[in-house]
Design a protein around this nucleic acid. Sequence first.
DNA 1: ATCCTCCCCTAC
DNA 2: TAAGGTAGGGGAGGAT
Length: 855
Amino acid sequence: MEHTNNVSNEQPISSGARTNAKRSRSRSESPEDLGQPSKTTLHHLNGPETNAEIYGASHFGQWGEYMQRKRAKLQIQNTSLESTSDEKNDIFRGISIYSYLSKKSLVFAFQFPIIHARVILSVYHRTHIITCSLTPAKIREFKHMKVVRPEWLVESAAAGTLLPWTDYIFHPGGRAEPSQGSPVGQTTLKSISRSTPPPSPQVQVNRNEMEDPVSRSKSPPSPLYTTDPATYEDAARVPGYALGRSNEMAERVMADPQWRAAHTSIAPDFIEGYYKNSRLHHLSMWKAELRNLVMEAQERAEREEFGNSQDKDGPVVREKAGAQSTSTTDVSMGSAELILRSPTKNKGKHKAVNDERVIMHCDFDCFFVSAGLTTRPQLRSKPVVVCHSQGNQGGASSTSEIASSSYEARSFGIKNGMSLRQARQLCPSVVTIPYEFERYKDLSLQFYTILMRYADDLQAVSVDEALVDVSRSVESRRAEAPISVDDHALALAQTIREEVKAATGCNVSIGIAENIQLARIATRKAKPAGLFHLKRDDVQRVLDPLGIDDLHGFGHSTREKAKEKLGTANLGELAKKSKGQLCEALGKGTGETLYKAIRGIDDRKLESDKPRRSVSCDINIKYGVRFENNEQTETFIYQMAEEVARRMHNISFLGHGICETFNKQIALSSIHGQATSDSKDIGDHAWKLLLSFNFDPKELRGIGIQIQKLEKAGTVESTAQARLPFQPVLRHKTPDHKVESMEIPTEHPQIVVQPPSQEMVLLQENSTVNAEEASAHDIPPFSQVDRDVFDALPESIRKELENEYERRSKSPVPDNPPPVPAERRPRIPVKGTTTDPPVWGTMWWALGGKISSDD
DNA sequence: ATCCTCCCCTAC
DNA sequence: TAAGGTAGGGGAGGAT
Ligand SMILES: Nc1ccn([C@H]2C[C@H](O)[C@@H](COP(=O)(O)OP(=O)(O)OP(=O)(O)O)O2)c(=O)n1
Ligand SMILES: [Mg+2]
C-alpha cells in the first residue's frame, strides 16, 4: 500500500442513472450534437485553399463539409445560407476559420454579413481559431495557432476590411483555471457583443504567416497566443512518480538507427512484446478476468441455489472443462473457474437494511516481491524491489519503474512506482528481482479461491486485492460459537490469512470494518502481515490524523485542491468544514463523499456483477514509437487494430519535454454499415483517418484506438478484456477458452483523431461528425443528400461529389460502399442483455517531443 | 431536471 | 534501455 499513488482502487459512489460509458460519445441526429462548444469551420472558399491539398484526395473532407453545412442550415433555420458566388465581401479571402464557439455564439456569428460570403466548412485546414472560451486542454491544443476572438470577424466585417488579427488575440482570463475541464475566459456571448476593447496584441506576428501556414510549421514553435498553463508540469509534480531526467544510456542507444529498427515500434511484433512486459497491462487484464470469474461464479451459484444442488464439498476452484494449460507461460486467468460457496448475493433485496455489514479488505503484502521471494528465501529481510532492470543494467540512472518494494526497502523510503534510480539513491544496496507474471496469476487464483469460500459477496479489486463481504459468514459463526471467540470477524480473517499463507507462502493483510472505505483504512493499519478490525468507536481516532489522500479515491490532485480552497488536507480539520464548503471546493458528489467518509460513512455496495462498459488499450511509449515513413505507420496501425483498441500518449522519459496528445472521434462502420469487431475494419478506418491528416510520421509518438458503448452479442461470458472484441481468432483457436461471446460495436463506433498543432492544421473535431447520418468515412447515398445543402456547396466540392456519385453508380466500390442510412440499417441481433447503447471508438495520437539528438 | 460531451482524476 | 495500461467516477457547462 505504499506505492506512490494511493491506497486503493475502488471508486467512490457509483453514479446511478448513468447509462453511457464514460468516455463514450453518443450519436444524435440533432444539430446540437456538436457537443459544446460546437466546433464549426467557416471556410472562405475563394482563396487558394480550394486546392487539393486542403481537401485532400479523400472525400472525407468533403463529406465533413457537407455535414457541417447541413448542420449549419439546421441551426439557422431562418437565415439564408445561400452562397454568394461573387466576390463582394471578400475581405476574408484566404482565411480559414475554426470556430470554437457555443451554439449561441455560432448563430450569432452566422448573422453577420460575412456569412453572406461563401462559407465553406473546411475540415482539414484552418488559419485561425475563433473562440471566446477554451478549456485548458484546448488551450494546449491550440497554443501554436492563431486564436482570436469573434470580434475580429465582426469588426472586420463592419469595417469592410480585414483588420489585423493580432489585435484580437484570444487569451484566457487570468491564470488557467485549475478545475478540470472548466473553460477559461469568457463564456457568454454577451461579453462578446459588449464591445470589450480588444486587448493589445501580446505577440507580434508577421502578417505573411497568415497566408502561409505551412511554412510556419517549419519555424520554431511560435510564441503562444494563449497563456500556457504548463499542464504537463503537473504530472512531474506528482510525488514519487518516476518522471525524471533523461536516461543517458537510452538516449545514446536510441541514436543508433539500427538499434531503433530492431527495437522500436518498427518491429512488427512490437505491441505484443510491449504488452508481454507491461505490468500495468497485466494488472488491467487480470482485474477484468477476475471480475468475470467472480461474476460467473455468482451466476452459477444462483442457478445452483435455484436448482437446489449444493455440493458443498466440491472444489472451489477448478479448471474449466477441456482447459488445456496451454503452456507453462499462460499468464491469463481465462481457464480458471471460481466457485462461490454461499450463493447469497445480497442484491439489496429485503436484506435487513440495518444490519451492520462486515467487509474485509484482503491484500497481499508487497505482492510482486512476496511472490518473487517464494523462490528466493535468501533475499528475505533484504531491501528487494521488482523491476525490469536487473543487476547493474541502467547503472545509477535506470528509469526502470519499481512495481513493488519489500517492507525493508520501504524503510529506506522506497515506494512502489519509483524509478530504480531514485531507489538506488535512497538505498544503494537495493536488490532487484524480475517480474514473474505467471506466478502472480497462479498465486492470485489460489487467493481468490480461498476468499470465495467465505464470501457472501466479493469484489475483485486487483490481482492481489479483494473486498469481501462476510457479514453472513461472521453471523453464522457467531451463532455457532457465541462465546468462545470475542471477535468472530477477526477470527475468520485470521483463518483466511493462514490459509493463504499456507497455499501461497505469502502474507496477506486484512482490514475489517463496516464499509469499504474503513476496511481499506483498516488494512493500512494491518500491514504488514497483520489484521485490523476498525470498529466504530475507533473510527474518529484513526481517521483524524490522516490526510485526505489517504482515503481511497482521493489523490494528489484533490489534496492540493483541498489545501488551496479549504486550507487543509487533514481529515480532522476538514471534519470541521460544512458539507457545503466541501462541495463548493471539490464538487457536489466529491464533497458529499468526503463529508461522509470523514465521518466513517460509506454506503457503497460491493461491485461484483457490473459488466464492463468499454474496452480500450493504451500504450504509453517512452521511446518505442518512431516512424520513418507512412508504411511503418500503417503497419503499426494495423497491429493496433488487431490488438483491439489502444491509445497512446506520450510523456517522454528521455528528458526532452512532453509530447502533445490529441484525440478525435469519428464514426466507424463496417463495410456494410454494421457493427463490427473485425480488426481489419477498425484498422482501415483508423489508417484512413490518420492518413487524412497528413502529418510527418516522424512526429508521431503514439496512436490509439478505443471502442466504447459495447453491446453484448452472445452470452455474458466474455473474458480477456483487451482481446475479446477484436480477436475472434481466439474463439476459434481455443474453443475451450469460453470466449464464445463477442462484444460488438453496434452500428458505427467512432474513432477520434486530431492533428498536430505544430502543423497549424486543425482537424475536424469529432463532434462535428454527424454519426447518425454518416460514417464520416464516406459520403451518404445520393438519395440521402440534402439537396439544399448540397447545392450550397462550393462548386468545386459539388463537382467532386457528383463525380463520386457518378462513379459509384457505375461501379460500386467494394472497398467503400455507402453505408445504409441509420434508420434502415439492420440492427445487430443481440443475444443476452438488451443494453443498447451504440459503440463508439476513440482514436488517439501523440506528436512531438524530442528524442536525443536526431529529433 | 437531466442528458451529453469533454475533460480530469484515481487506482492497481 | 524499458515496456507510464486501462476502466470507471465525476465535474463543468451546454443542449434539451
Ligand atoms: N505503482 C504500482 C503499484 C502496484 N503495482 C503492482 C505491484 C504490486 O505488488 C501490486 C499490488 O499493489 P499494492 O498496491 O497492493 O502494493 P504491494 O502489494 O506491492 O504492497 P502493499 O500492498 O503491501 O502496500 O501491483 C505496480 O506494478 N505499480
Ligand atoms: Mg498489496
